[in-house]
Nucleic acid binder design. Sequence first.
DNA 1: AATTTAACCAATCCGCATATGATTTCCCTC
DNA 2: GAGGGAAATCATATGCGGATTGGTTAAATT
Lengths: 230, 230
Amino acid sequence: MDDPGNGCHAALVQLQAYLAQMDHAGETRLPAERELSESLGVSRGDLRKALAVLEKDGRIWRHVGRGTFVGSGPVEETIGISEIAGRTNPADVMRARLILEPEIAREAALHATLSDIAAMRQSLVQTREAVTWRQYENVDNLLHRQIAQASRNNVLLGLFDVLNAVRRTVVWGRLRSEGARPPADHHSFADHERIVEAIAERDLGGAAAAMRLHLQQVERRLIPVREAAE
Amino acid sequence: MDDPGNGCHAALVQLQAYLAQMDHAGETRLPAERELSESLGVSRGDLRKALAVLEKDGRIWRHVGRGTFVGSGPVEETIGISEIAGRTNPADVMRARLILEPEIAREAALHATLSDIAAMRQSLVQTREAVTWRQYENVDNLLHRQIAQASRNNVLLGLFDVLNAVRRTVVWGRLRSEGARPPADHHSFADHERIVEAIAERDLGGAAAAMRLHLQQVERRLIPVREAAE
DNA sequence: AATTTAACCAATCCGCATATGATTTCCCTC
DNA sequence: GAGGGAAATCATATGCGGATTGGTTAAATT
């Protein structure tokens, strides 16, 4: 049932030749089945059987409405934030931040330019000048992203953006109602200054440690402390 | 110039009332400017001034063609992989992998279920049975993803997927032509087994260290060694 | 009876009309 | 003539219908 007639085998041979010829040209998408079957002189059924073999072998992949392509997998072009956010919780987000952001701060300490550091310091000032929770959050977001940007690694920056988007989706509408004014002696002020200072001094380990400490403070504030439990 | 007439102030007051009334309903998008100006009985110019104030304050955000929304930021729904991949290079990808994946392995050692570990071991076997470079890559990808899945943290899994997609986009069409057979004594076989073993034994540090070592081997193989240079 | 062919289905892409925020221009009023 | 508001205009994003494509089923042909 898998190799019924010789027509199927002939189609597979022709297809492999076509693939080899096409792979050299750097083209990834091959013609529609209706065209290709006529072009190769085989029936569409046999062509589809040959394509199925190659697909199971991982040499091509197909998708309805798009076409048939050479390569191992579809390489999703976009990642849905809500897809991730819908299947997770604040604790997991916090864990991911604790893993990623300290290392990003370390990279920033290694690669930040002077203008990066100047921009961070300006954000520090703006953080203290915020008169609204919303404003504070905005500047806080900006500062963290500036640190990621200072790593001079666009992959890390992209991962940070994804994580940030997931975080904002997952904790949406949480800390809204607790008074509309900025906290005067908020721990984050000193935390942020320590982080930026370590980056400015090129203290790799210090930057990572300061960021880790800051995030642990945030975590402690996010989840009401249950000291007796642990 | 900022508060020319009383019309602007009146518009701002009405708008704030409208926002408060709407925020309770959970709706985030407010009507078009042309409708809203007529609905509130103010000129569109005054309405826009009031909206500009609220936007600078971070209470709303606007975008051409979409509308005006309440909230601090647009919260991008999708992240474009090619956007990240287009602005980076293999070295940055490798650096990000070295930061993220060892920590994911550590989490996996902590949270993996028995069936997770069984699936990994099966992938190990399939890795050795691969008769084609493409097949090997597929199983290798699967194994690394299984490790990320075993972390039982969907955020980390999502970040891994993003990183993986960027990697496959950025190094696409690289290691293709070096012989179509799987390497017999590939270092990755032993590396992978060490990683899975450490996860199975709940050796957190060991899993992270094994993964780090593995990735460093991959890096060394990706970038032709220039021993004298360093 | 088997295979080819055609027809149909579900998902995707593409072009065009529409909607929306931003900007400019024109006109009216004082 | 100067200010302000309404309308026109622009640039961008969305929504929808037709065309395309892989997947499936039925008819036809040999």
